[in-house]
């Protein structure tokens, strides 16, 4: 009877279909581009982050009209807060235990981190770009000096923060970052009177050096964070 089964099967051989691959491929949904993905991530940045960021912008632009003396200290003291917001957004996947699921998707945790860092970085850059001319105008220092006094605390706080969330786990990591940021903020707020020597003209080049080192460190830490996503999904 097997022979008959076989013959029946042979009879029902149809000529090959011609448009199969084309059809099946047309069904596969198109994919979103990385750029579109980054834009979609923008929608997931917390409202709180936007609110605090707006307050910082308001602070930077309004403060000159409130206090008479140089505003540079206040503005530069706000920079570590921006760094904290950036690190905090980047850290969310780990804090809320989404990292593992995100890792197994097509874009993966890497892209999520990259997207968030790029978004927050851009946004912070806007703040810095606003802060520098404002501080220069309402202050005693040159644009270069003002720029460095603003950018350096940001970069130092950011690189330290990124390093901390890479090596420490859970919520304690974020608290540590917050503490470091606060420390740097206070240093900037309070140093105008106490550490006048730090801000003499000659000292500017040291600020430049620190800023450069911090920039390199920040870039390196960001790269390490994105490359070694395994490290940070800690409960493995």
């Amino acid at each position: 009877m097997n022979n008959l089964d076989h013959r029946i099967k042979e009879y029902f051989k149809a000529p090959a279909p011609k448009r199969k691959e084309e059809f099946i491929n047309s069904l596969a949904p198109s994919e979103i581009s990385f750029a579109r993905f980054v834009i979609s991530q923008a929608g997931y940045i917390r409202k709180l982050t936007w609110i605090l960021f707006s307050l910082v912008i308001v602070g930077i632009t309004a403060v000159p009209f409130i206090i008479d003396s140089s505003v540079i200290w206040f503005v530069s003291g706000l920079m570590p807060l921006l760094a904290l917001l950036m690190v905090s957004e980047g850290n969310r996947s780990m804090r809320h235990k989404m990292a593992e699921i995100e890792s197994a998707t097509r874009f993966s945790l890497r892209s999520v981190l990259l997207a968030r860092m790029v978004l927050m970085g851009t946004v912070n850059l806007v703040a810095i770009v606003i802060a520098i001319p404002v501080s220069t105008h309402f202050g005693d220092y040159s644009a270069v000096a003002s720029g460095l006094y603003i950018v350096t605390p940001f970069l130092v706080a950011a690189s330290a923060g990124l390093y901390i969330v890479r090596v420490m786990k859970g919520n304690t990591a974020l608290y540590s970052v917050a503490a470091v940021s606060l420390f740097i903020s206070l240093f900037m707020f309070l140093s105008r009177d106490r550490f006048a020597s730090l801000f003499i003209k000659d000292a500017v080049k040291y600020w430049g050096l620190i800023a450069l080192l911090a920039l390199v460190a920040m870039v390196k830490q960001t790269a390490m964070l994105i490359k070694n996503t395994e490290e940070i999904t800690w409960n493995w």
Binding site: E31, I32, Y44, E100, I101
Partner: peptide
């Protein structure tokens, strides 16, 4: 995974839409 969390204010739909974007689904 054996254990997973979610972003605090997510609804079930929000969660799935979020992951769908990560899976590159338009």
């Amino acid at each position: 995974p054996q254990d997973f969390g979610y972003y605090p204010e997510f609804s079930a739909k929000d969660f799935l839409l979020y992951i769908a974007a990560l899976k590159a689904i338009p």
